[in-house]
């Protein structure tokens, strides 16, 4: 018979080995896949994206900004730029780096795939929104233009990605940049958020956490060098200016007052009722469609009926049907309390 101590040690060693190889993200296999992916083609595509991005934002790309954006050394960046020039994707005008028409078309193809994939992740999967960008960074180098077109057709040719960036068309058309930075908005001005920057991660996570999404309505309250005080979709919110600078808005003429979203469904006490004002922009894709299917729409009256044993979920009376929703969903539904019935 096998010595038990030896068998246990051997089994532990084998499982450790398996974990080291297959652990997602940091295992040997994942690392090997990453290095394999880090080919010259990807470097070229990422460089083109960077150059195009600067051009779109009317900034001047240099070989230093490229090295920074791709996390490569200055020498490598210089070699990469030489390569791009020999491929006639780029030409240098003194210090300035200018994309050729071919280079721009190539960059737009990659960007199209990136943004389409983000749209797909947002609308048709349960992938967390802080992961969209990273997964799209990988996918953009794998999709063929035909696959990208098929995906676009399936999703009804979306024109914007979930961060509000326009998705270039198959022919490479893209509108001029619109909007102004949120920090340029004056007190009492109204605006609609059209874009939030998805890089760096920390800023993006902060914006997501504060419930700032493309499509929400902003009313500026006050702004100084320490704090931006505003009303986002009727809810008071404060941002650090450095975070707010990553939000792009388009000012709108709005004289009538926006309905205040003073509470969410999660705030309703048992027996209390409220009228739906909106479903938060953070709730999207299948989640949002499900809510609408249930009849949770602006104007619907909802009454809290009973609470589950652990305090969650809560059953609500919605259009004559009793439907249980979890706390995190109820928080997505902005309501106005019906005062006379609350209690």
């Amino acid at each position: 018979m096998v010595d038990p101590a030896r068998a246990l040690i051997l089994a532990a060693a084998v499982s450790l080995l398996l974990v080291l190889v297959f652990w997602p993200g940091i295992g040997v296999l994942a690392r090997w896949q990453r290095t394999r992916l880090n080919t010259r083609r990807i470097l070229i595509e990422d460089a083109l994206k960077h150059l195009y991005d600067y051009e779109y934002q009317q900034l001047t790309a240099t070989h230093r900004s490229l090295a920074g954006a791709l996390s490569i050394s200055g020498d490598e960046a210089a070699r990469l730029l030489e390569g791009l020039q020999s491929l006639e994707l780029l030409r240098a005008q003194g210090e300035h780096l200018v994309l050729t028409d071919d280079g721009r078309a190539y960059a737009l193809r990659v960007i199209r795939m990136h943004r389409l994939w983000e749209r797909y992740l947002a609308d048709e999967t349960g992938v967390n929104e802080t992961e969209w960008h990273h997964q799209a960074e990988v996918k953009e180098h794998q999709l063929t233009p035909e696959q990208a077109d098929a995906l676009a057709v399936r999703m009804g040719n979306p024109s914007y990605d979930p961060h509000g960036d326009p998705i270039p068309t198959a022919t490479g058309e893209i509108p001029v940049k619109r909007g102004i930075a949120l920090t340029k908005l004056q007190p009492y001005e109204h605006a609609e958020v059209v874009h939030i920057e998805d890089e760096p991660d920390v800023v993006y996570a902060q914006l997501v956490a504060q419930d700032i999404h493309p499509g929400i309505h902003i009313r500026m309250i006050s702004i100084d060098k320490d704090k931006v005080q505003l009303e986002a979709d009727g809810i008071e919110n404060a941002l650090a200016p450095i975070i707010a600078a990553n939000v792009t808005v388009v000012p709108v003429d709005r004289t009538e007052t926006i309905e205040r979203h003073e509470a969410t469904l999660a705030d309703l006490p048992l027996g209390g009722s409220g009228r739906v004002v909106a479903i938060s922009r953070a709730c999207r894709g299948p989640q949002r469609r499900r809510m609408m299917d249930l009849g949770i729409l602006p104007g619907t009256t909802i009454t809290a009926e009973m609470r589950g044993i652990g305090g969650d979920p809560t059953a609500y009376m919605i259009r004559g049907a009793t439907i249980a929703l979890r706390m995190n969903q109820a928080k997505m539904i902005h309501i106005q309390r019906n005062e006379e019935k609350a209690g």
């Binding site: 349960g126 894709g285 299948p286 989640q287």
Partner: peptide, 17 residues
Amino acid sequence: RTMLKGEVSTFSLELPP
């Protein structure tokens, strides 16, 4: 938390009469 992280997840539970 691992294999199924990316699958679509929604919740609703009807309590019929």
